[in-house]
């Protein structure tokens, strides 16, 4: 069966098209003010990528913060369920998946069949999500990728007092004014977000194997600080961390029928 999973995130829309358990197409696009149109466009790009006709898709499942926007969906799946299913598919040894997106971060525990058993969510506060790092990179005028990599070359331990992205921006500005090297500022920012995310995920009892996905999984500064914080070296990062939830949704769309 051909199914599509659409993850409507607060920043990007991700689509995965599956034929059975094989990924045949995918697409990603930044969301806009007209989400319905953007979803439509992303889905069509994925259809093109899969080299199929749109009508060949039998079931569509949506997930993510904007999951209710797309009217044609056969199933609407919560982020936690889709994320859990997706990360389990990437590596079925995973028992704890940590999804750090632009506007929320979550810890999702799954059992040996990929079913969610527990979760913790930090939402609606930029200090606990990817937006935090993005705001700080912007305050420094460095692009995200370069900013993330800078952290790796620093051993400094500058504590950040602010626990709010808006206040932290002023703190970064004053660090710049004190001629603090950019790499040390980057390290401070990544240590700060990693400490909050790791406190949050400790609320569920962390069971190996642990995986990180979502936007911040691409950020080596975060991943390194996060590993140090949790004192866990073996952290699995899937090949395409942004598509995990869309993949989960696409899989669940098929499984729902079978079940």
């Amino acid at each position: 069966m051909i199914s599509a999973g659409i993850d409507v995130g607060s920043k990007n829309i991700k689509v995965v098209i599956l034929d059975g358990d094989k990924i045949i197409g995918k697409a990603i696009q930044t969301g806009s003010d007209d989400q319905e149109k953007s979803i439509e466009e992303t889905l069509n790009s994925a259809v093109k990528d899969a080299k199929i006709e749109r009508s060949a898709i039998e079931k569509i499942a949506t997930t993510g913060i904007g999951r209710k926007v797309f009217k044609e969906a056969d199933y609407v799946i919560t982020d936690v369920t889709a994320g859990g299913r997706g990360i389990f598919e990437c590596d079925n040894a995973v028992r704890t998946g940590i999804d750090v997106g632009a506007e929320e971060s979550k810890a999702i525990k799954v059992n040996q069949v990929g079913k969610v058993t527990d979760s913790a969510v930090n939402e609606k506060c930029a200090a606990g999500s990817g937006s935090f790092v993005e705001s700080m990179a912007r305050a420094l005028g460095i692009d995200m990728k370069a900013f993330a990599e800078l952290a790796l070359s620093s051993d400094a331990k500058i504590p950040m007092n602010a626990q709010c992205a808006v206040f932290a921006e002023s703190e970064v500005v004053s660090l710049i004014a004190q001629n603090t090297p950019q790499k040390d500022i980057s390290k401070a920012v990544h240590d700060s977000i990693a400490s909050r995310v790791s406190s949050m995920v400790r609320r569920v009892k962390l069971e190996p194997r642990i995986a990180i996905f979502g936007g911040l999984a691409y950020n080596p500064g975060f991943v390194s600080a996060f590993k140090k914080n949790l004192e866990i070296e073996d952290i699995f990062i899937p090949e395409e961390p942004l598509f995990v939830s869309a993949l989960g949704a696409a899989l669940l769309a098929q499984e729902k029928k079978e079940g």
Binding site: D33, A126, V166
Partner: peptide, 18 residues
């Protein structure tokens, strides 16, 4: 609707665009 100022900013921009 967003409490967080960072998210409220995006919401305000979206309102202007709409």
């Amino acid at each position: 609707s967003n409490v967080c100022v960072v998210f409220a900013k995006s919401e305000a921009m979206a309102m202007v665009k709409s």
